[in-house]
Each structure stands twice: as structure tokens, then as C-alpha cells.
């Protein structure tokens, strides 16, 4: 594979017009990216890549997985990660590598010798490998991004708010699944202990739909809170949701349910022995 003669020709070809070739490379890539990355940035990235590639080829290797290409791979990883984070498509990322072939074309036309054609093909397959590597890294970076975002979402969407001394509230927003309910449940129960609250309100105003599974999760949370010595109220039940719950035949038993958070807060305060009224009312009594 690593025929020293061919490698030599390849290196000669690449190093002879290094300046022209990399300039052409940069031009092609920046046209495809249509000004979403500054030309100076692309210029710097690709020139670094070009010299790393040249250095790797000088070792006589032509396999993208070789140790000689470690630096090239590191640069490509960095490049695809940046592109993934900036929201480019996989092809726009891979073109950064494939465009080098396009840049080489005029150089070949100048030299009709068959030898350089062969070395061009070898370089081509090397660049294909590197291009595939770029796409793979891109996909991995995207996956990491997605999983870290969904984790953040999980954290973000389950705050526990203290409404009053001894009353906490969990406003639920978005669809409830088992994983999310577990997080909500644990957070709420821990908050009960941390704040010493005996009343908790679960507000489901932001939950788009309640099915038997969601209801089951809610019931479990309420029972767990009861086991620990706290009372739960479920609030924010919209008319459609009330209808669905009844139609599904879900029994909330003796769990207090309220239409609005305000009602639930009043209920929770009354249960903890706090009475709220206008100042005038008290004077009248």
C-alpha cells in the first residue's frame, strides 16, 4: 500500500504548490459554507490541516487510521465538533475534506503523466476515509449535544418552589413519562425533608395530557409523600383533563384536587392552620 515511489510523487505534488492548493481549498470551502464562518477562520483551520496532512504523508503512510495521522484526526475532530455545535449539516462538514480533491484537479490537468493520476487516486481514497471520519465525529458530537440537552431539560423543568412556610409547590410543565416522574418525585420528597414542609402542591397546569400512566405516577408520588408525613394537593386540572380522568375511570381517592393553584394554596394553608382574609373582615368580627 505505502509504495514509497507513489508517496513521494504525492508529496511532491502537494508541497510544490502548497500555497496555491490550500488557497484554492479555502476558497471552495468558504463558498459552500456561504459566509456563515469567517474566511479567516476557515483559512486558519484548513492551513493547519493541510500542513498536518503533508507531515503525515511524509512518513510514507497512506492509511487514515495510522498513528501518523493522529494529528490530522485531532484537527478534524475539532473541526467537526465546532461545525456540529454551529448547526451545519453533515455534508457541509464533510465537504471541508472532500474539497481538497477538487482543489487538486487543476494541478493534475497540468501534468498528464499517469503516475500522478495513480497517486491522486490513492490520495482520494485517503481523503474519503478522512471524510467519513469527519462525518462519524460529527454524528457523535451531535448525539452528545442532544443527550446533554435532554438532561438539562430534565433539570430545568422540575423546580421545587417554596410558596409559604411549610408549603412547597412543584409546577409540572410538559409531558410526564416514567423517567421524569421519578426525578420529580425524588426532588419533591427531598425538598419536603429539606424545608420541613408538611404540605406539597403538584401543579399540572403545564401538562398537556393525562393518561392512566401519568395518573398512576401522580398517585404514587402522593402516597410516597403521605408515607413521609406530608399531604399533597393536585392543582391546575383543566376542564378537558378532568373529563379525560373521569372518562378513563381513574380514581384519585381521597387526594385533594383543585382547579387552580390559588385554591390549592388556600387549601394547604388552611390545613396547616393558617387562615387568610382581608384586614377589614377581621375588624368586622
Amino acid at each position: 500500500m505505502a509504495d514509497p515511489d507513489n508517496s513521494r510523487q504525492l508529496i511532491d505534488l502537494l508541497s510544490a504548490d502548497a500555497e496555491d492548493l490550500s488557497a484554492e481549498w479555502v476558497r471552495i470551502v468558504s463558498t459552500t459554507l456561504r459566509g456563515r464562518v469567517s474566511t479567516a477562520e476557515i483559512d486558519q483551520e484548513l492551513r493547519e490541516l493541510y500542513s498536518a496532512l503533508l507531515a503525515a504523508l511524509r512518513t510514507g503512510s497512506l492509511a487514515a487510521k495510522d498513528d501518523a495521522f493522529a494529528e490530522v484526526r485531532a484537527l478534524l475532530t475539532e473541526l467537526s465538533r465546532t461545525r456540529a455545535r454551529q448547526g451545519f449539516t453533515p455534508s457541509e462538514t464533510a465537504i471541508s475534506v472532500f474539497a481538497l480533491k477538487q482543489a487538486l484537479e487543476p494541478a493534475l490537468a497540468k501534468d498528464p503523466d499517469g503516475g500522478s493520476l495513480r497517486s491522486y487516486l490513492q490520495l482520494s481514497s485517503l481523503l474519503d476515509d478522512l471524510g467519513l471520519f469527519t462525518v462519524e465525529t460529527y454524528a457523535r458530537a451531535r448525539e452528545e449535544l442532544i443527550s446533554s440537552q435532554s438532561e438539562q431539560l430534565l433539570e430545568l423543568s422540575t423546580p421545587v418552589v417554596k410558596l409559604w412556610d411549610g408549603v412547597i409547590c412543584v409546577p409540572l410543565v410538559g409531558t410526564l413519562d416514567s423517567a421524569r416522574t421519578m426525578v420529580v418525585m425524588e426532588k419533591m420528597l427531598q425538598a419536603l425533608i429539606d424545608t420541613g414542609s408538611e404540605q406539597a402542591i403538584i401543579d399540572i397546569t403545564g401538562v398537556p395530557a393525562v393518561d392512566t400512566q401519568v395518573a398512576q405516577h401522580l398517585l404514587k408520588t402522593v402516597v410516597a409523600a403521605r408515607l413521609m408525613g406530608a399531604e399533597c394537593t393536585i392543582s391546575g386540572i383543566r376542564p378537558q383533563i378532568a373529563q379525560t380522568i373521569v372518562a378513563l375511570g381513574i380514581d384519585f381517592g381521597d387526594i385533594a384536587t383543585k382547579a387552580s393553584l390559588a385554591d390549592a394554596l388556600r387549601h394547604a394553608l388552611r390545613r396547616s392552620g393558617i387562615e387568610i382574609g382581608r384586614r377589614g373582615d377581621r375588624v368586622a368580627k
Binding site: M185, E186, L189, Q190, L192, I193, K220, V223, A224, A225, L227, M228, G229
Partner: peptide, 11 residues
């Protein structure tokens, strides 16, 4: 009662 224990009992 700890939260984990309460959850276990419910389960």
C-alpha cells in the same frame, strides 16, 4: 422516612 424508602414502599 427517607424519600428512597418511601418510594420503595410505594413500589
Amino acid at each position: 422516612m427517607r424519600p428512597a424508602v418511601a418510594i420503595t414502599l410505594v413500589e
